[in-house]
Design a protein around this nucleic acid. Structure first.
Length: 964
RNA sequence: GGGCUCGUAGCUCAGGUGGUUAGAGCGCACGCCUGAUAAGCGUGAGGUCGGACGUUCAACUCGUCCCGGGCCCA
């Protein structure tokens, strides 16, 4: 059957219409299409072309925080890179030269482990592999993962200098890092001190937290009496019967005791022993200091009865070491110190404190005397590397904490307990099963042991009398934080942090490439030596430090025997804290831009403690200010319910999966539609919502493309010549343009997305395009109305597509190249919007018009429900407005056109009582009328005039004219 | 346990300095159109603004506490 006639006999005028025409498919097929775009961009060197085009524009430097080069990327790293890409692309389109040099963090323990694991799997022992082989294997491992991650980042659409990334293991980078440490030496911030670390006596090495596993262990518990030598308010009591009682699960730490901590929040009293059961180690009349909260518990363990004699202030008490009478070695006083870490859940309320054997112990002692380690070196030499009492420790020298293979308890605890009993200082003993740290490798329990480590001093004045802490705080004050609360967070950390521990007893990293003068213990700070070190590193990498004899660096005239070559490895945070030097300030690759300070650092909120801080401290120590002007943080990616992702729960969503299944543009849309300043969620439902939003945007753009088919410059019409409806849209365009640019300038991508999305939905799809479909399809080509609409659509297209290009980088390129086949949207700038486009008064006017329009569409909806009409073109309503000003709004406008009805009338005055009203639009009412006349076979409007043109009896005047 | 931080409809987000019946989009339900058609338009139902106490004439907006998330520490 021919299409010309259906059963009603009406002619089909389809061919005479300008129906939408486009090759832009509704279905995107992103998973297949995106890789093709990537290949095209790479082949055309789009990134290079953007660099060339941007040359000479104001620079914008986003310095990339390096992800760690092991394993696949996860949603957090994916989000991070996508946000950075938004920044780079939007800054570029705002007229900046915004290059992006991506980087990787390559050194450090996690990689070293993976390699050691490999050795173990092949039956090799770590110690049998030479260090340069280990380092070589680590390097290759990192290289492999850099490649994997680079591929995954590219797939996300992230545009960067991918062929020339920075890495912390690049030889020049390693040389720079070593050189930065020399700067610390030069300003006197580097010093050697002690710090308690987890130490495995079996492997004779320090262990990192990640090398520790927790297992149940039975430990002896002892209550020990420390004789009081001085107590302010109790001068009349005989000293020997007065004791402070402590409790501990590590008897071997008693010889290392140097203090007792109490809680300033707890209350303490002096108790008298009033009765002692058989076997009790205290006798009647003895006086014991205990916390009130734990006194009863302690008494029952000691099998004694006690009564409170007096309340006391523990700060006035001084004790002697329980072994004072055994040997002059223990002649020191044991002060009582206030400590927040003291709790009332176990023990006596007094905490035995051995600064060489506990983190809290060390910190508290340091807090009371920053020079404690220097003044009391003996406190840190109690236990040797293999877990025995040092020769200088009387009575206990040579006793081991553990058997040599780590499988059994040694003789140290027993010896200490025996001696305590003999000295009459033991109050009670027992045993306790608890979680205790063990070595991941030997499975043996670890101990805490203070070891010499290298530190950067936080509180030593060095630059114009200021300390590193002061400079860092000043630097933070000068930095802009997005969101602003980030400044507080990092500020409180910098304010309270201890000195920076820079050394690790490891193999894979940049060494602390320094020498210590054996005679003085001072660091050798010799320009010529340092220069030789850096020269060697630049040429051969930091491996040179381990492969070359010391004489190579020391040079002529220095006897290597006089110097200790430090073989410790730098904390990897020092590496990443130095990236700004070799990447931004003194780029070691000619492909990278130079700048004195990065405009922006953009990382997850965990980096307040990490990279933001290490970079801050490094920058302030070496040049006096932070390496960044602004810091932007994003939250963590959680699952759909707001819980953290974990493999064991099975709620992990990988960005690669979404790219493969839905497309990277969907993932990018998710990033833009979420508030990244807080933690953000991802999951099936959320992705589906973004797929829907994507479709809506895609269809709006498709509609524009389809209605711009064949658009030529000769059709263009000046805004001043356009109908008011078009001028209203142009005014909206100006308004949205300002919002979008402000949003991008503030890195507020969520606002950009919401603004553009709601513009597409509310202004375009539901209003402007819906109204203009009639003119676009049915008007003849020369119609001013149609030309105006096509001109405005062209302007909308240009803007919407460029606005969204930083976010939907694939789809906007697809749309753009459909109209401009040899261009790239990514070489475009955001369009300038002529100042005269802005017209707030016109927008205000049309807001009212649209309110009144709702009174009409509401009335039509009612008739639709009543089955009176289907299409709105079947109506010819009358809009009653009470206010003459409302009526005046419609002067020169066609209400029928705006309402998409076949006719419409505005009447001033009271509407009939039964007219349709909307509660929130007072002063207006609609009386429904059915449109009179016949339906124009071409435009479907129902008009009395249809039939008046003899040549076209089934058409309205406009269509008859159009058909000709 | 400490520091910081978050908790508005099923989902994603708006809601300057406290002030009428808490908004949008999506989704959902229902309807229309069939010349944006695995599209478009419209209508509607959904929220004790995490909870409890306070401050105030008035709190989603301020304070305290609690509950539940998250990051960083211990």
């Amino acid at each position: 059957m021919s299409k010309d006639s259906d059963q009603t006999g009406a002619k089909d005028y389809r061919a005479t219409l300008f129906l939408p025409q486009t090759d832009f498919p509704m279905k995107a097929g992103l998973p297949q299409a995106e890789p093709k775009w990537l290949a095209k961009w790479e082949a055309e060197d789009l990134y290079g072309r953007i660099r060339a085009a941007a040359k000479g524009r104001p620079q914008f430097i986003l310095h990339d925080g390096p992800p760690y080069a092991n394993g696949e990327i996860h949603s957090g790293t994916g989000l991070n890179k996508i946000l950075k890409d938004f920044v780079i692309r939007s800054q570029t389109m705002m007229g900046k030269d915004a290059p992006y040099v991506p980087g990787w963090d390559c050194h450090g323990l996690p990689i070293e482990w993976k390699i050691e694991e490999k050795y173990r799997a092949s039956g090799k022992s770590k110690d049998s592999v030479p260090i340069d082989q280990l380092r070589k294997d680590c390097r290759e491992f990192a290289l492999k993962w850099i490649d994997v991650q680079r591929g995954q980042f590219k797939r996300m659409g992230v545009m960067a200098e991918w062929a020339h990334p920075y890495t912390t293991m690049n030889f020049a980078a390693e040389a720079t890092i070593a050189g930065e440490l020399h700067k610390f030496v030069d300003v006197g911030l580097l010093y050697r001190g002690f710090r308690p670390v987890m130490w495995s006596p079996v492997e004779k090495t320090a262990l990192a937290e990640a090398e520790i596993e927790y297992h149940e262990k039975t430990s002896p518990t002892i209550y020990v009496k420390f004789p009081v030598v001085r107590a302010g308010l109790l001068k009349d009591r005989p000293e020997k019967s007065l004791s402070v009682v402590i409790w501990t699960t590590t008897p071997w730490t008693i010889p290392g005791n140097r203090a007792i901590c109490y809680s300033p929040k707890m209350t303490y009293s002096l108790f008298e022993v009033v009765d002692a059961s058989e076997g009790a180690l205290a006798s009647k009349g003895e006086l014991l200091f205990l916390s009130d909260a734990l006194a009863d518990q302690t008494a029952s363990h000691a099998k004694i009865e006690i009564k409170c004699v007096a309340e006391v202030d523990p700060s006035t008490i001084h004790c002697a070491h329980p072994f004072r009478e055994l040997d002059p070695y223990y002649g020191f006083d044991v002060p009582l110190l206030a400590g927040e870490h003291v709790t009332d859940d176990t023990g006596t309320g007094f905490v035995h404190t051995a600064p060489g054997h506990g983190e809290d112990d060390f910190e508290i002692v340091l807090k009371n005397d920053p020079n404690y380690p220097a003044k009391h070196p003996d406190a840190f030499r109690v236990i040797t590397a293999d877990g025995a009492f040092a020769p200088e420790v009387p009575v206990f020298a040579g006793k081991y904490i553990l058997s040599r293979d780590g499988k059994k308890e040694g003789d140290a605890n027993g010896a200490v307990i025996k001696q305590l009993i003999e000295s009459g200082k033991l109050l009670a003993k027992g045993s306790l099963r608890h979680q205790y740290p063990h070595s991941w490798r030997s499975k043996a329990p670890v101990i805490f042991r203070a070891t010499p480590q290298w530190f950067a001093a936080m509180d030593k004045p060095f630059r114009a009398g200021k300390t590193l802490r002061q400079l860092a705080m000043e630097g933070l004050a000068a930095t802009r934080f997005y969101p602003a609360a980030g400044a507080n967070r990092i500020g409180s950390m910098v304010e309270g942090r201890p000195d920076w521990v820079l050394s690790r007893q490891r193999a894979w990293g940049v060494p602390l490439a320094i020498f210590v003068v054996k005679a003085t213990g001072e660091i050798l700070n010799d320009k010529a030596v340092n220069a030789r070190i850096l020269e060697a590193f630049k040429a051969e990498g930091a491996d040179a430090w381990f492969n070359s004899p010391a004489s190579r660096f020391l040079g002529e005239g220095k006897n290597p025997d006089d110097y200790e070559q430090v073989k410790d490895i730098l904390d990897v945070w020092f590496d990443s804290g130095s990236t700004h030097v070799f990447t931004v300030e003194q780029p070691v690759d000619s492909h990278w831009p130079q700048a004195d300070q990065a405009d922006l650092y953009l990382e997850g909120s965990d980096q307040h403690r990490g990279w933001f801080q290490s970079s801050l401290l490094e920058g302030c120590a070496t040049k006096g200010h932070p390496p960044y002007k602004a810091v932007l943080t994003h939250g963590f990616v959680l699952d759909e319910k707001g819980y953290k992702m974990s493999k064991s729960i099975g709620n992990v969503v990988l960005p690669q999966t979404i790219a493969d299944q839905n497309g990277a543009d969907i993932l990018r849309l998710w990033a833009a539609s979420s508030d990244f300043t807080e933690d953000l969620r991802i999951g099936g439902e959320i992705i589906k919502a973004n797929v829907d939003a994507y479709r809506r945007l895609r269809n709006t753009i498709r509609f524009m493309l389809a209605n711009l088919a064949g658009f030529e410059e000769s059709e263009r019409i000046a805004v001043s010549e356009m109908p008011e409806l078009e001028r209203y849209i142009v005014a909206k365009l100006a308004e949205i343009d300002a919002l979008v640019k402000k949003g991008y300038a503030d890195y507020d991508f969520n606002r950009v997305f919401n603004t553009v999305f709601s513009f597409c939905t509310n202004e375009l799809s539901a209003f402007y395009f819906d109204i203009r479909k009639d003119a676009l399809y049915c008007d003849k080509a020369t119609s001013v109305r149609r030309r105006a609409s096509r001109t405005v659509t062209d302007e909308i297209f240009r803007r919407v597509v460029t606005w969204l290009a930083p976010i939907l980088c694939f789809t906007m390129e697809e749309a753009w190249t459909l109209r401009y086949p040899n261009e790239s949207v990514h070489l475009q700038l955001f369009a300038e919007t002529p100042a005269e486009w802005a017209d707030p008064a016109l927008i205000e006017k049309w807001n009212r018009i649209r309110s009144l329009r709702r009174v009409i569409t509401g009335a039509l909806e009612l008739q639709r429900k009543n089955k009176v009409i289907g299409a709105s073109l079947e109506a010819d309503p009358v809009l009653y407005v009470e206010d003459a000003a409302d009526a005046a709004l419609f002067a020169g406008l066609d209400l029928a056109e705006i309402s998409i009805t076949s006719g419409a009338e505005v009447a001033t005055g009271q509407a009939p009582a039964d007219a349709f009203r909307l509660p929130d639009v007072p002063g207006a009412a609609t009386v429904f009328r059915a449109a009179q006349g016949d339906k124009c076979a071409r435009c479907w409007r129902v008009l009395p005039e249809v039939g008046e043109v003899p040549e076209h009896p089934d058409l309205c005047h406009r269509c008859a004219d159009a058909v000709g």
